[in-house]
Design a binder for these strands. Sequence first.
RNA 1: CGGGGUGUGGCGCAGUUGGCUAGCGCGCGCGCUUUGGGAGCGCGAGGUCCCGAGUUCGAGUCUCGGCACCCCGACCA
Length: 410
Amino acid sequence: MKLSTLFPKTQRQAPKDEVSHNAQALEQAGYISKLFAGVYSYLPLGWRVIKNIERIIREEVNAAGGQELFMPALHPEELYEQTGRADIDVLFHLEMANKKKLVLGQSHEEVIVPLVKKYIQSYKELPLYLYQIQTKFRNELRAKSGILRGREFIMKDLYSFHTTQEDLDAYYEYMKEVYSRIFQRVGLGNRTHLTFASGGTFSKFSHEFQTLTEAGEDTIHLCESCHIGVNDEIIKEYNRCPQCGKSTLVAQKAIEVGNIFPLKDKFSSKFGLTYTDQNGDEQPILMGCYGIGLGRVMGAIAEVHNDERGLRWPAAVAPYTAHIVSIGVDQKVLAHAEKVYAQFEQNGISSLYDDRDERAGVKLGDADLMGIPHRIVVSEKTGTHVEHTDRTTGQSTVLPVAACLKKITE
RNA sequence: CGGGGUGUGGCGCAGUUGGCUAGCGCGCGCGCUUUGGGAGCGCGAGGUCCCGAGUUCGAGUCUCGGCACCCCGACCA
């Protein structure tokens, strides 16, 4: 991709109506654009980051047996009356021309449970794991923190269906590992902690995955001994770690990037979702649900991986792998830069090539802002070589193009 | 939904006790110069001053009523 044609160009100054670091940096660097409070467009760079996060999640959830589908965002309100959720305050309400009442989906239990009921009858068809990556709508009283809390947001929601509590428990435990891998891969591993949260009336606990950052809206109590967190809501009940029993809990700010919930029969009982067991008896299907907010993950990464100059994307989610910058107007330099860009593309390294007729400060400043992991400078100084800078460590070396390619791909 | 703050070219801002063609920086267009950390000179384009109603000879400025955005709460993936 040539930077001269990339939409949009970066902003010289951070937007004044954003305070959270993630939104300031992401908007200034051209990753997102706010339409109104809590509602953002993902611009080409930002969309590539979302797609990378999505790919990682999809790979891991597919490996865990998940079958991807796609459900509507428009839901008949009557389904929510059946579950008693029709008047929860985050629901957006709307109406069809014939006055039928609808809501915008804030989650999909009300859709997927009737869907599964329609097709599943026997224990032979279970367990079943269905998921989607889709837009949710929540009428937040107050949207804030940039893309950390939107009114419209992309979410991966997985629903599991089981015949026995043991089977649900086993899959639930397995999903903890899957989630850990996902957060590891997107670059949040060393700051993201499994956290005990309230299970409401139907289970003792649910679990959240909380990424430690000062920008977080939640306070968790992290066990210094086993690194398990306890949600603020339930710390009063459990003044010691529910995992290891020690009382070494330390309060920290965190952002909830994922959660998993043992629903059991909460929704299946409302819709009569049952299966026939081996004895021909009707039994309730037990469920779990598992969510990850993609925009929130992106925002959390932006909060965690940055420096005073701009963003610093982990390689796995970066919009491009290399940011090639030509400096100067010398024809030989420009020809060399074009060639380097072509070589990177041929070697399968996605590259953003700054071919603009701009001064060095502008181009290098934009590279800092955008935060692509490998910066490749071509100038009169580098001659037939290139200067490679690792955005994460800040280390620079001048080396031949082939050596640079090798360094990046290994 | 309570408390506080802010709305003026694309972005960031100034605009005095109401006053005449509404300014500045950045960005944008054209020309010349410049070229390893956000250049210089010249010319130029770009505005429902958030919206509505009022007061006044005259409103960006005053009054009333809305709306939006940001911050702090309460609530929430």
